[in-house]
Write a protein that binds this DNA or RNA. Structure first.
Lengths: 243, 243
DNA sequence: TGGGATTTGTACGTATGTATA
DNA sequence: TTATACATACGTACAAATCCC
């Protein structure tokens, strides 16, 4: 129980805001009880008593933690420990990109830089960690892209899965989540300034080149293939900058 | 004004939750009016009318956006467009690391991987973009580390500034903010499992080596210096894993 | 210096929507 | 279907912080 001296009437000295105390209290509760993602938290009313705050304060605190995916609130069911995903990063970054058309170009370029740096910088470990299963998964995804491109369809979801699969051999959850987060940011922000015919066939081929490099186990070639993959995006951003 | 059809009594069909509607409404308001960070938003009561929701709902929505640093609320003053920093990323990631002692080791290792990958992968552009001012700044920071290490003091803040200064020549805000964010996560999570004598002198020397490589304009040497810089952290994480 | 106006923060009561058993 | 537990929403009143005159 996170009792906070509400018994003595008039405790005029109170460090910060009530809401922030409750936020700290809930975090504390999770840590002290060693809860894991998915574990249930006390109900709102219980939290009110425990921390000695009103429902309003508790609810606002929970909303703050909910936005960070530290807690997960299910209507009519209860409150649970969240999964602490990077959804908040996506929301925040993506919205920044939507603010103005200058900002969105800048951000897009920077996101592409980071994505390329990570994929290239980890290319050695990617090749080293690749299993046969990874390779076939990657090959099938590239094949799917080619097929859909030939049919004139888009393949955003396949592209996302491709870049995730590329990073999977690393066994690094954080890299995986960053990959997904930046991919999403790009997917959200890019359409706002691109009245451009999508070159699906070229894009698909560039992914095939990545697969080939991976299969060959050639790191230098993989780095080049990754650079080539991001080149069209860069030119389309540069083109938008001039316009 | 973001009027949302509250005029007709009984609008039984309401897509989602009231709060989420308000969240969308506020985002919309910012975008439609092309507001920039720091610009004022309508007061709570004005938002209530505009979106046709109660003050509680509006406040919860604002708290959600506030957690993402999309808005910035100042008690007794008003609500403003936020700076969309990566503070949410730090909070979320850092707390994940505090959950359990296994998680914190895993996360620390992954954070170090990402930091090293970014610094090494961008080493070429770092050297290319370095001005004399950057070099002297970096040299002074390393010097400060050496001095403090000799005096037996720690220099966390200097270390943070060093890695930011290293990335500054890139002119990439996102990289800069990620650098700061991951640095903070490491600074928060690392102490939870390190009852270890800090080797300040070694750490300072490793930073000096980075400065020397930068001054020499030698990318390969810089990459090595960066790897060497993170090596002690890795061993201390590995040591904790065994224990 | 001070006081009043504005704005956000907290508290409480009540009613409603939602999921589970 | 009913009952129960829970989150969601609304409204009001008051406290606290900030600003301006």
């Amino acid at each position: 129980m996170a009792q906070i001296d509400t018994g003595s009437l008039r405790t005029p000295v109170r460090a910060g805001l009530r809401r922030d105390e409750v936020v700290a209290g809930i975090k504390d509760y999770i840590l002290r009880n060693q809860l894991r993602p998915g574990d249930p938290l006390p109900t709102e009313s219980e939290l009110c008593e425990a921390v000695g705050a009103s429902r309003s304060s508790v609810r606002e605190a929970v909303k703050t933690l909910s936005a960070l995916d530290i807690v997960d609130v299910r209507h009519g069911h209860g409150t649970f420990v969240g999964r602490m995903s990077l959804a908040a990063l996506v929301e925040s970054l993506a919205f920044r990109g939507l603010l103005s058309s200058e900002e969105d170009q800048r951000l897009l370029g920077q996101v592409v830089d980071v994505r390329q740096t990570l994929e290239q910088g980890l290319s050695g470990e990617i090749i080293a960690g690749m299993t046969d299963e990874h390779r076939t998964d990657l090959a099938e995804l590239a094949e799917e892209m080619v097929d859909r491109a030939a049919a004139g369809e888009d393949f955003l979801d396949v592209d996302r899965e491709f870049h995730l699969t590329l990073m999977r051999p690393l066994g690094n959850d954080l890299v995986l989540q960053l990959t997904e987060a930046f991919w999403q940011v790009q997917a959200i922000v890019a359409p706002t300034l691109r009245p451009e015919p999508p070159e699906h066939i070229l894009t698909a081929d560039l992914h095939v080149a990545i697969v080939d490099a991976v299969k060959a186990g050639d790191q230098a070639r993989l780095r080049d293939a990754i650079a080539a993959h991001y080149a069209p995006v860069r030119t389309s951003i540069a083109r938008a900058t001039k316009a």
